[in-house]
């Protein structure tokens, strides 16, 4: 069984995590830019983007893991508009680096007007820096807990403001839960589910959502970071699905092929979906 971890903050993890992930079948990770736990200066962002595009790929490669990332200003740091615009001006030079999949994780945190302004600027940046008539892939963080329902609605409404300039099949809206996944899928976007048991989903609830809403355009991640989290919650979710009798082909689709399909919207993403073939060795 092979895995692509669609959302993990490896800068916060140990090298032992890379080793454990590789031993557990992880062949690629996608690391969105995020909040460091404290607000940074614009120059710290430049260093962070170098870490994501230069250092982490080397650390991952030691274990045969391909490292991809996303560049943006996380919504938690969008409240200071002046600083946010300064950081936004840094971003284009990093977007064309080889392991960058697109713009993310942008989104909302407390659903404030300043956060919404910076969100729209990021979306416009993804459009303006796209190629061949397609905007860059976009990865979106939805707010936590009591702010999630309203924030997810606001995000979908803002994306619709861009009309045909935004292709929902090139946008993943992450951290969906029971009250938000339907609206995301119905609008044609990819839906991410995050297994982070105290504040987001559990393995059991993530598998429930797959059973209720289907496995099309769905990715499962653990968003492991500097909090109480573990990249292998993705694998625990696979085990829960397996325990309920889901077939290997379905598991391969959810944990490998769906991320490979969405990330494959970026030409530099090298991993292709795989098929599970049961061969009768006696007839080969």
């Amino acid at each position: 069984m092979f895995f692509i971890d669609p959302h993990v903050h490896m800068v916060s993890r140990t090298t032992t995590d890379y080793e454990n992930m590789a031993m557990a079948g992880v062949v690629a990770v996608s690391e969105p830019a995020f909040w460091a736990g404290f607000d940074r200066t614009p120059s710290a962002f430049a260093d962070y983007y170098r870490q994501l595009t230069e250092f982490e790929p080397l650390r991952a490669a030691q274990f045969g893991i391909s490292h991809y990332c996303w560049i943006c200003l996380n919504p938690k740091e969008a409240e200071d508009s002046g600083k946010a615009r300064e950081v936004l001006s840094l971003i284009p030079q990093y977007l064309s680096r080889p392991n960058v999949l697109g713009v993310g994780e942008i989104g909302l945190h407390k659903n404030t007007p300043n956060e919404m302004d910076i969100f729209r600027r990021h979306v416009q940046l993804a459009i303006d820096t796209g190629s061949a008539g397609r905007h860059r892939l976009i990865l979106i963080h939805t707010p936590h807990l009591e702010d999630k329902l309203r924030g997810t609605r606001l995000i979908i409404d803002m994306l619709k403001e861009f009309g045909s300039a935004i292709d929902p099949s090139r946008v993943l809206i992450d951290h969906c839960e029971e009250h938000t996944i339907r609206m995301v899928k119905d609008a044609g976007f990819w839906a991410g589910m995050t297994v982070y048991p105290t504040t987001k989903a559990t393995p059991e609830r993530a598998v429930d959502m797959i059973e209720v809403y289907g496995s099309e355009r769905v990715c499962i991640n653990a968003a492991a970071d500097w909090g109480i989290s573990d990249p292998l919650w993705v694998h625990r979710t696979m085990l829960e699905a397996r325990r309920r009798g889901h077939k290997l082909r379905t598991l391969m689709k959810i944990f490998h092929n769906n991320p490979a399909t969405f990330f494959g919207g970026h030409l530099g993403f090298a991993i292709r979906p795989m098929d599970v073939v049961h061969r009768d060795l006696n007839t080969d």
Binding site: T199, E204, R205, D208, E211, V212
Partner: peptide, 19 residues
């Protein structure tokens, strides 16, 4: 937060049983 998560776990289990 722990109680909130536990209540969601119970709700999801009851939904699973209902389905």
């Amino acid at each position: 937060l722990k109680a909130r998560a536990a209540s969601l776990d119970i709700a999801a289990m009851l939904d699973r049983l209902s389905r």
